[in-house]
Amino acid sequence: MTVIVQHVSDAISLGALYALLALGIGLIYGIMRLVNFAHGDFIMIGGYTIFLTAEQNVVVTIAATILMMVALALVSERIVFRPLRRASPATLLVGSVALSYFLSNLILVVFLGRPKTMSFGRDLVEHFEFLGVRIPQINFVVIVVTLVLMAGLALFLRKTTIGTNMRAAAEDFVMAQLLGVRANVVIAMAFAVGGFLAAIVTLLYFSQTGSVSPRSGLPLVIIAFVATVVGGLGSLVGAALGGFVVGVISVVLQIILPVDLRPFRDAFVFALVILMLVFRPGGLLIVQAMRERV
């Protein structure tokens, strides 16, 4: 029983983290059809921000990370993605791969390849008693933060003017523009919110792993891709659901796969993704606005 509760808390917490990760990508995809391959590198750079501010107060670290990543997202929108706005989704994807390659190599030049360790959030790894079961505190933090952020995002998108504009733009960009939605503002806002979500993922993720290297972004962006595809590109609920499902499945596979097959876990996950794309290209939740019109 104890073991099961621990596994369940691991699965839910990993699923919640992946859900946040996928939301960041899904938000921008919905509005400008960009699957941002550089999202993982944003998080990696956030990791270095934590590393650099490790001496400071925790509040300073958190604020610096959020500022850094919102700024990074906005700058890359302005320099790279705005000029490419009219390009096809595939070209945008290639552009974001180039940006990712640029960022990871820039960090490699500055900080060299060896992983940097940090002690941010170390205390949270300690266990505490809950209904007679010992559970790492971080699992609770992740779950609570995710729930709060999702509620906040939902309120933001539904109750504020800019949020409504963003939803309109995701539904039909040209129509929204004709009705007076400012394209630059909406897209910049999507990047800012995406950067903010990425910053939170950064803080939660690196307080668990404790080390960052120029290649830290890659596995994260791969997971986010898988999650958004599984959930359904273009749907925020889908992205969150997809992230959650992927997190839970990877914990479950890790537990149930025979030891011989465990190294092949990722191969199974990707095979599932390809099958999913072939048989249900729209993902779990199909969005009307994403249907191609002729």
């Binding site: 092949f264 794309l277 072939v278």
Partner: peptide
């Protein structure tokens, strides 16, 4: 399977291929 896809779906599933071959 993949020949039925285009655009982003093709990009992601071909990346999946790369991961599968690498892992195996």
């Amino acid at each position: 399977g993949i020949s039925r896809l285009a655009g982003i779906a093709a990009g992601i599933s071909t990346f999946g291929l790369l991961m599968i071959v690498r892992v195996v």
